[in-house]
Design a protein around this nucleic acid. Structure first.
Lengths: 245, 245
DNA sequence: CCGAGGCAGTACGGTTCCGTACCGAAATAG
DNA sequence: CTATTTCGGTACGGAACCGTACTGCCTCGG
């Protein structure tokens, strides 16, 4: 539960963008949550209990098929929300969603969210705009998966994670990066090693630090950037790609 | 323009699913269109003039990036509609959309569509349900692009096209199939040749006929089927995967 | 009926990435 | 402080697919 006066500390871009008149539909239903890495938000084929507006951390949306092939189809941070199907009138999760990098946020019960967007047209429009941004990200993930090389995809992933973090260090093992990208763990190791030798990142066991963001952007090329630019277009410059340091 | 009494001949699943009370928001604004292959419906970065409810034919939604990498991220036929961004409050096309297989349908001006979903809650819910189905398809395209082999992806594409056609013959060159899948033209040729030798398809210059759909489904494995099953779940058995013959 | 252009078949070296596996090093638990 | 687990580095053969290119055939327009 979060009263109107508590909005000041909010970092989530979607909550920030809620009009004052709409806040009462959402704020009182928000419940602060802190989530460790691998915390599960949605399970494929099961009902979605809550939507979550992240304040920090990064969530992964992972598509799964009947033979258990998996791949990440989207990344969500403080710029957005989980539970997109709820916005489209579906209460079942098609994909699995879990925290890839630990963080916190505010969750709202599925019913409360559906009620809110049923009451306020403006609120619904805001969330649907986010849905549009997320769809674009998924489409460009499909593009990268089909056309980009491993190094480009890894660079893209690191940049997307970095956009959603306050530090430059990604606390992830090669194994998990490999699962996200749908490639071999060993392939990730080699790629990271190459990045390191080029001075783009430094590594320690279980973590990786971006030291030359511009260089990583160069590796990713145009596979990174379009969804970020579109989010800016949809929401204004406050959201989207963070400037290189 | 299509009056209420003209609904009888409609084959488009979404138009069929419109409640009688809602028909007046849509029907009078519909304009019949016939479109050849490669007819352009939406151009990346430009405003979307119309949404289109297909009666026949297949449209491809193709994501493009700044360096002109392209790949198909979705297929639309008589089960759905083009112009998804309009439903989410965005009037710009992020992707290019064009007819891959010639067909006909009914189009509605962007303004009229937005007006209609603004007036009828039920109508909006219907179209958003389609949006959800389309998102699932895009996500599974990302999955297939990242994890499936060329033959599996080709099989998946043929099945998705077949679901949306009334004949078993796909009038496409290897070149265009290759563009959709984001692979070499020569790679498609070899894969089709393999299909042919296994008795799954027959080919002529510029066209390909499915003769053993079950066999093709076996090749695609679980990379095909999930979005189709979800569409069934969302809309009932009338839509979705067509039974094998 | 013939010429031009589009399309399919084939080839070949090269690259990327996979599947698998092994080992040492680093963190963690007891 | 030691034992156990997890993680990263490395290796190797092989499969999949690429980029490129050449050729012959089919189809359609004239």
């Amino acid at each position: 539960m979060l009263e109107a006066h508590a909005r000041a500390g909010i970092r989530n871009r979607l909550l920030q963008a809620i009009a004052l008149e709409d806040w009462d539909w959402i704020g009182p239903h928000l419940e602060p949550v802190s989530m460790k890495e691998r915390h599960v938000l949605e399970v494929s084929t099961k009902p979605i209990p809550h939507a979550c507006f992240l304040e920090s951390g990064v969530a992964s949306v992972v598509a799964v098929d009947a033979e258990d092939h998996r791949i990440e189809v989207g990344v969500i941070g403080f710029e957005g929300m989980t539970g997109v199907p709820l916005l489209l009138g579906d209460n079942r999760a098609q994909h699995s969603t879990y925290m890839q990098i630990a963080g916190s946020g505010h969750r709202i019960a599925a019913d409360a969210l559906c009620g809110a967007i049923g009451k306020s047209e403006r609120l619904r429009a805001l969330f649907l705009k986010w849905t549009q941004g997320f769809m674009i990200q998924t489409a460009h993930t499909a593009l990268a998966n089909g056309r980009a090389k491993l190094e480009q995809r890894l660079a893209r992933w690191l940049l997307m994670a970095h956009d959603r973090m306050t530090t430059d260090t990604v606390p992830l093992t090669h194994e998990f990066l490999a699962v996200m990208l749908g490639v071999r763990r060993a392939g990730v190791t080699v790629a990271i090693h190459s990045f390191e030798q080029r001075g783009l990142v430094t590594t320690r066991r279980g973590q990786l630090t971006l030291v030359n963001r511009a260089g990583i952007e160069q590796v990713a090329g145009s596979f990174y950037g379009t969804p970020e630019a579109e989010l800016k277009r949809l929401f204004g410059d406050a959201t989207g790609r963070r400037d290189a340091k």
